[in-house]
């Protein structure tokens, strides 16, 4: 057997191992409803803030700077309460989309990792034509 074949064999074996662990660990995109059915399993859900609530985000840093509670609604209209055990991201109110990664537990979506939420804000790293339109309309002298 050629050395190159041995190397290839080891390489394939290692890659296979890596891929298997990787795949075993993957989470999936779910809706809030299907996340409820998979309670305790890590899932990713695309949501937005539930603006039907008067106060969709509750964060009281003077009491507990490490808990942000907020309410979300997914594309199918399912709603859920979310516990995020970190500070409220500064521009959360403005976000038009929040991608959550965490577990549903006792009806509450629990996020225990800082990077467990990813927000898309109209203004960050991209231009929101609507916001620009607004400023253009207001910012007149």
């Amino acid at each position: 057997m050629k050395k190159l074949h041995i190397v290839a064999l080891i390489g394939i074996a290692a890659s296979l191992m890596v891929i298997l662990t990787f795949v075993g660990d993957l989470s999936t995109y779910e809706t809030l409803a299907s996340a409820r059915q998979k309670e305790g399993k890590t899932v990713t859900v695309v949501t937005q803030l539930d603006h039907s609530m008067e106060d969709p985000i509750i964060y009281d840093p003077a009491r507990n700077a490490n808990l942000t509670t907020f309410y979300v609604v997914d594309t199918l209209g399912n709603k859920a309460k979310v516990h995020y055990y970190f500070e409220k991201p500064f521009d959360m109110e403005k976000s038009d989309r929040i991608v959550l990664k965490g577990k549903m537990q006792n009806g509450v979506f629990e996020i225990t990792r800082k990077d467990g939420i990813l927000m898309k804000c109209p203004s960050k790293y991209k231009d929101n034509p609507n916001a620009t339109y607004e400023t253009l309309t207001q910012n007149v002298n």
Binding site: F22, S27, T28, T42, K101
Partner: peptide, 15 residues
């Protein structure tokens, strides 16, 4: 509809 597991950093770091 796959996504990297909960701990994104570790899924890279351990390899």
């Amino acid at each position: 509809s796959l996504d990297v597991g909960e701990n994104v950093e570790f899924s890279y770091n351990r390899v």
